[in-house]
């Protein structure tokens, strides 16, 4: 009974945040770039969309602009790393920190309420069925479409070059690919997905908050780790599927934990422990075979 109760909320959140997991997969696993921009680009997407919608801009257009803003933020991290030779982790942290101020500037305050504004979800409120159903269907369609597009992209000539950049940078450079540009573009795409997720979630929950991105990377990593434990990422299709499934499972576990008495304030700590546990088990076992091979992590 409990499981049935938390299923809708886990599905809704899992699918909504699956775009974040896909973005993190693209950066960490495909490009092997540990990108921490996510904690800033997620609220950036929310902030841009919320501000534009608040100002009366059409919601779909607002989401498109928010996605582009995410692309710009990710590209900046890539430029810091490739052009200025700043360490990848630091480049992400710098952008994340800068984006905190940028997001406050964009919103003009710490949060924007959207409850009285028309959003992409408004028409769902007036239906005769539980709001969960249309919302879940909406996020399912978006996530499946983005996953499919990402799968296709990663099999194109340029997509293969991008994957090779994360897999064997020296090799693909000797084959004529400007790996710096590939990294910048790949990070842009990754953060565009994250910002898209932020823009949609802000509308779904009815507000954007400057703190909505805190812990987003760790949650995303937890999703990826759980997903890849279930679905061995032998192909691109399975890699992205693992991100989506993992996102759902992570939200499910979290919801279950909350129902069983986990304090919401302890959520991020629990998630952190989850990641530490997953990455640390092989060290306890001291077995090399058990070592989780997670590129970028």
């Amino acid at each position: 009974m409990l499981i049935l109760n938390i299923l809708p909320i886990s599905l809704q959140q899992g699918l909504a945040y699956a775009l974040v997991a896909l973005g993190i997969t693209l950066a960490f696993r495909v490009l092997a770039f540990p990108d921490l921009t996510v904690d800033g680009s997620f609220p950036l997407g929310g902030a841009v969309a919320a501000r534009l919608i608040f100002e009366g801009v059409e919601p779909t257009l607002s989401v498109a602009v928010a996605t582009l803003a995410g692309f710009a933020a990710g590209s900046m991290t890539g430029l810091l790393n490739t052009r200025l030779k700043i360490n990848s982790l630091l480049a992400g942290i710098l952008m994340m920190t800068i984006l905190y101020s940028v997001n406050l500037r964009i919103m003009g305050r710490a949060n924007i309420q959207l409850l009285d504004r028309p959003t992409m979800f408004t028409f769902m409120e007036n239906m005769d069925i539980s709001r969960y159903i249309p919302v879940i269907i909406f996020f399912l369609l978006v996530t499946v479409a983005i996953k499919a597009l990402l799968d296709i992209f990663l099999h194109t000539e340029y997509g293969l070059a991008l994957r090779a950049t994360g897999n064997n940078e020296d090799m693909i450079r000797s084959l004529g690919v400007n790996t710096d540009n590939a990294t910048v573009f790949g990070l842009g795409l990754s953060n565009a997905l994250v910002a898209l997720s932020g823009a949609l979630i802000a509308q779904d929950q009815g507000f954007a908050d400057v703190g909505m991105g805190i812990g987003m990377i760790v949650a995303g990593l937890a999703s990826i780790i759980i997903g890849e434990a279930m679905i061995k990422p032998k192909t691109v299709f399975r890699l992205t599927l693992a991100a989506v499934v993992g996102s759902f499972l992570y939200r499910f576990i979290i919801s279950l934990g909350l129902r069983l008495g986990l304090a919401p304030t302890d959520l991020k700590m629990a998630t952190g422990f989850m990641v530490i546990l997953a990455l640390g088990i092989p060290a306890f076992k001291k077995s090399r075979e058990g070592k989780i091979h997670l590129r970028g992590i």
Binding site: H155, T156, E157, Y158, L160, A161, R163, L175
Partner: peptide
């Protein structure tokens, strides 16, 4: 086959066309 495909395009423009 993916490796062969990225090698075949050595020094050429890589487009948004199916790779293999």
């Amino acid at each position: 086959e993916e490796n062969l495909s990225i090698a075949e395009l050595r020094g050429k423009r890589r487009r948004l066309k199916w790779g293999v």
